[in-house]
Amino acid sequence: MTISDDARDLDLLFAEARRSSPELPDDLAVRILTDAEAVRLERARPAVPANRGLFHGLYGALGGWQGLGGLVAASVAGVWVGFSAPSFLPDPASYFVSQDASYMVADLGLEPTFLEELE
């Protein structure tokens, strides 16, 4: 057998292979077009990432889950102290409700005569 015979056989074989090139299977075409449609729809929905972006921005600004966790713990502690203050803490509200001026000045450790002098 000569080299040119081999070459010609190979060319015939290639030609035959080209003629019998596979069609795109229908179910594969459907899979490809389904992907295309998913990508197209995903791209056509800018509103969804925008909304998510707002919450994400806030979430990020507060320090993610650690930040939010700290914030929640501090809030709960504040509410607890408000309802049930430990006895050693003064009640600051009493300074602002139904107290007269002399009592306030006496608290500062000044003699009532000081007030008379002022008058």
Partner: peptide, 21 residues
């Protein structure tokens, strides 16, 4: 297709899919 035309994907699939495969 990038501008949102689904039918363009179909023509591209017909044209390029068989070559890939």
């Amino acid at each position: 297709f990038a501008d949102g035309d689904a039918a363009a994907a179909r023509v591209l699939t017909d044209r390029l899919g068989p070559r890939c495969f």
